[in-house]
Design a protein around this nucleic acid. Structure first.
Lengths: 97, 97
DNA sequence: TTTCCATATCGTCATTCATCGATATGAATA
DNA sequence: TATTCATATCGATGAATGACGATATGGAAA
């Protein structure tokens, strides 16, 4: 858990929004064809209004920071919040900030 | 309390270190001539190894985010953590992340 | 008033970041 | 095998950030 890298990842509203959407997938991604417990397809996040490549870059930042995990199933890649890392970060920030 | 601006302010190790130093002034700034409860002189933070102007810029980012308050006394400007904002931010991040 | 000191602001430069369209990759399908 | 679809990666570009030395500001002291 690299707190500095996580803070950098959180320092963009698009990325905090993605993480926020992923808190309650059933609330935000009910339109998804696949079962929600597989995770959320990358394409779903294009609803933020940015291009496919930009969204992909934001997702990569979140993944490098360990805030989301990915899983390939067929031609799709599913994203999930990494609750362990989120919890560890929250503990850290509560302790040190 | 602008959480996005605070996250941007926290997204640099120098600034998180400054905030961390300000948690226990008596531990880190015992060398200061002035009483610690006035706050910490800007110049004290040059111990991070950066130039005066760069340190001043980092302090300005923290101030704009509301994470520190300043108080001019004579020719010095004293910095303090803004515990209200820090607490409000922690509450927010615990609730939304 | 002149000088000195602490700090902020300015101008510049290099680096990183956000964004896009285009292209590559890799799996599914025809 | 050729095509399609979802996603990642590439290359370019403009914007924002971080750093510095130099300068401005504002108060204290001589």
């Amino acid at each position: 858990m690299d707190a500095d890298e996580i803070l950098k990842a959180l320092a963009h509203p698009t990325r905090t929004q993605i993480l926020n959407w992923l808190r309650e997938p059933e609330l935000h991604f009910s339109s998804q064809e696949h079962p929600l417990d597989m995770g959320i397809c990358a394409g779903q996040f294009e609803r933020c209004g940015l291009s496919q490549s930009t969204v992909s870059a934001h997702l990569a930042v979140l993944q490098r920071a360990g805030l989301v995990t990915t899983r390939r199933v067929g031609q799709w890649i599913f994203y999930k919040r990494n609750e362990e890392t989120v919890a560890a970060f929250l503990k850290h920030i509560n302790d040190t900030l």
